[in-house]
Design a protein around this nucleic acid. Structure first.
Lengths: 131, 131
DNA sequence: TTTGAGAAACGAAAGCTTTAGTATTAACCT
DNA sequence: AGGTTAATACTAAAGCTTTCGTTTCTCAAA
């Protein structure tokens, strides 16, 4: 039996780190640490630990560059976005993507512009499928 | 200073319980436990603990009914759905709902029917706003 | 009113997440 | 080669999540 994986999802801090790595493409512990927002104040060794864990969980690989490790995502952000949406849809939207979108477009905060963009996206996808 | 709340989001098991409560409207420990899927095999006291925690975190209230506690959601599912979507959008979609939908409709698994429903929803919302 | 069954309250253990300290190693400069 | 600097490896503590056992309580029936 393989490793016991509860959900294939990143924890909060893991996601924070993956976001930086996705933005950078790849990077060392130092690179990621420097990328974190002002006032995050995380010890270097903590950052190193997180990246080590991400490697254990196979979300990133590393290669050696001199004495440093350069970490590279093994999973594209796109793929993880899809995975997260599936998970959320499953757990909270009865596995029905339309109801997820329903909630999203019901949100009063949503701008007219965002709505227009969303419709354009859906239209384009429908055309590509049928056309 | 108020309680230190990291994210206002439910944990995995808490969400599992809230889903049952939302489905039931309200219920006792026993009610929720019986609602859980076959083979979940959770001890009665575990279920009671989860509900106690949900009450501490103010996701549910309880009233007494004889010797039993009846638990009632304090937060509607709708509201929690919105909250979750905001959180996901923020953390993984650059706070841009349109990009979330973009990823959703890119998903190859998405049925034509679901796409149609989604477009209908968006159209309806646009009409209600402008008209 | 005693007692038995089921419920609540409490406490705590096991595992995971997040953070960081200490020890060790590796590269580079002189 | 030796020393300095910066990185990695290892270990562990603190806090949170999930689970359940034990004790206490409460209602209702005999």
């Amino acid at each position: 039996m393989r490793q016991k994986k509860k959900s294939d999802l990143l924890t909060e801090v893991e996601l924070e780190f993956m976001n930086e790595l996705w933005a950078l493409g790849e990077g060392t512990v130092r690179d990621v640490l420097d990328q974190l927002p002002e006032g995050r104040n995380l010890a270097y060794t903590s950052a190193a630990t997180i990246l080590r864990i991400l490697e254990q969980k196979e979300f990133v690989t590393s290669r050696k560059d001199g004495k440093r490790h350069v970490f590279v995502p093994m999973l594209a952000k796109d793929a993880y976005q899809t995975r997260s949406l599936k998970d959320l849809s499953m757990k909270l939207f009865d596995d029905t993507p339309a109801s997820l979108v329903a909630r999203l477009v019901d949100d009063a905060d949503l701008s007219e512009e965002a709505l227009g963009q969303i419709r354009a996206l859906v239209d384009r996808r429908l055309k590509n499928d049928t056309g």
